[in-house]
C-alpha cells in the first residue's frame, strides 16, 4: 500500500493505536514492533502527574467494556525524561494526547510539546468522560471547542488533531467548530458515557459511577458519526470505535476515515494487530479502487 498523507504527515499504513490503549509506545513490544503501525497516540499526558480514579476502574459489558481510569499519567516532565528516548528510536508517526483542565494549562502543555522533536502531532483530548473538569467539558460545546483549538493552533508548531466526544447532540457542529478554528484533523470517537449497576451490591459497579464504553458495542455508532462528520468537514478523519477486524476498519474508511484507530482491541489480542494490517492491505488490493478512492466511498455509491 502507498503511504497516506494526512494533516501534513505521512503514515506508512492507516492504522493508529488509540490513546490510553498503547501506553507510551512501549506496551506492545512483546507482541510486535510499534513501527508496524502507521502511527500511535501516547497515553493522555498532563502538566503534572495524575493519580487517576479509585478502583473499580473497568468492567466488561456485552461486546465491550466501560473504563473510568481518569487519565492516570506520569506527567510531561517524566514523559520527556523517561519515555521520549525510546520513542526517538521509532519511525512511525508519534502523536501526543494532551489533557488539561484549563485553557492556559493546555497552552503551556502544547508549548512544552513543541520542544519534543520526535512528537509529530498533538491530539487534544476534549472528550474524556472520566474527569471532573476539562476533558469532555470542552468538547460538548462548539464555542469552547473552537476557542481552545484556536488557542492551541496559535502556539503549537505541530499539526493539531481534535479528538471528539460522541456524548453530544450534534457531533457535526463540534467537528465544524474544530475545523473552523484550524484543526488539521479530527479523531473520533472517544468513549460513550455509560454505567453498570452491580445488582448484588446495589451500587454502581465503577467507583467513578460512570465511565466510557468502548469495544465492538460502539462500532455502529462510531461508523455513523464518521459518516456524518465526513459530510460536514473537509479535514482528514481518524476513525475508530471497536475495531477488531479488517472489515471493521474498512467500514470506517468507507464512511470517510483517512486513518483508523485501534483501541480496546489492543488489550484483547495485541499480536493479531500486525496480521489485521497485512490482511487489510490485501483486501484493499482486491478491490478495484486505490486506498484514497475508498475513503468515503460509501457516500458516492448509489443504491440500485
Amino acid at each position: 500500500m502507498k503511504s497516506i498523507k494526512a494533516a501534513g504527515l505521512i503514515f506508512a499504513n492507516p492504522f493508529i493505536a488509540a490513546s490510553g490503549t498503547f501506553g507510551y509506545a512501549d506496551s506492545c513490544l512483546d507482541f510486535y514492533h510499534p513501527d508496524l503501525l502507521g502511527g500511535f497516540v501516547l497515553k493522555g499526558i498532563s502538566l503534572e502527574p495524575r493519580k487517576g480514579n479509585s478502583p473499580m476502574r473497568i468492567i466488561e459489558t456485552p461486546s465491550g467494556m466501560i473504563n473510568a481510569i481518569g487519565l492516570e499519567n506520569i506527567g510531561i516532565e517524566r514523559l520527556i525524561k523517561d519515555k521520549i528516548p525510546f520513542i526517538e528510536t521509532l519511525h512511525s508517526v508519534a502523536i501526543a494526547n494532551l489533557y488539561a483542565e484549563t485553557k492556559d494549562d493546555f497552552i503551556e502543555l502544547a508549548e512544552k510539546i513543541n520542544e519534543i522533536k520526535r512528537i509529530d502531532a498533538v491530539e487534544i483530548n476534549i472528550s474524556c468522560p472520566n474527569v471532573k473538569s476539562g476533558g469532555m467539558q470542552f468538547g460538548v460545546s462548539p464555542e469552547m471547542t473552537e476557542n481552545l483549538t484556536k488557542n492551541i493552533k496559535k502556539v503549537s508548531s505541530k499539526p493539531v488533531i481534535v479528538k471528539l466526544s460522541p456524548n453530544v447532540t450534534d457531533i457535526c457542529e463540534i467537528a465544524k467548530a474544530a475545523e473552523g478554528a484550524g484543526a488539521d484533523a479530527l479523531s473520533l470517537i472517544n468513549t460513550i458515557s455509560a454505567m453498570i449497576i452491580d445488582t448484588k451490591k446495589m451500587l454502581p459497579a465503577l467507583a467513578n459511577v460512570t465511565g466510557g464504553l468502548s469495544g465492538p458495542a460502539i462500532l455502529p455508532i462510531a461508523v455513523r458519526m464518521v459518516y456524518q462528520v465526513y459530510e460536514a468537514v473537509s479535514i482528514p478523519i481518524i476513525g475508530g470505535g471497536g475495531i477488531s477486524s479488517v472489515n471493521d476498519a474498512l467500514q470506517f474508511v468507507m464512511a470517510g476515515a483517512s486513518l483508523v484507530s485501534i483501541g480496546t482491541y489492543n488489550f484483547i489480542s495485541p499480536a493479531s494487530i500486525p496480521v489485521i494490517i497485512k490482511q487489510f492491505n490485501n483486501e484493499v488490493k482486491k478491490t478495484d479502487y486505490s486506498y484514497s478512492d475508498l475513503i468515503g466511498i460509501a457516500h458516492r455509491q448509489h443504491f440500485t
Binding site: G23, R57, I69
Partner: peptide, 9 residues
C-alpha cells in the same frame, strides 16, 4: 500486561 491501568490497587 500493564497497559489499561484498570486493575490498580
Amino acid at each position: 500486561f500493564g497497559v489499561c491501568l484498570g486493575c490498580v490497587i
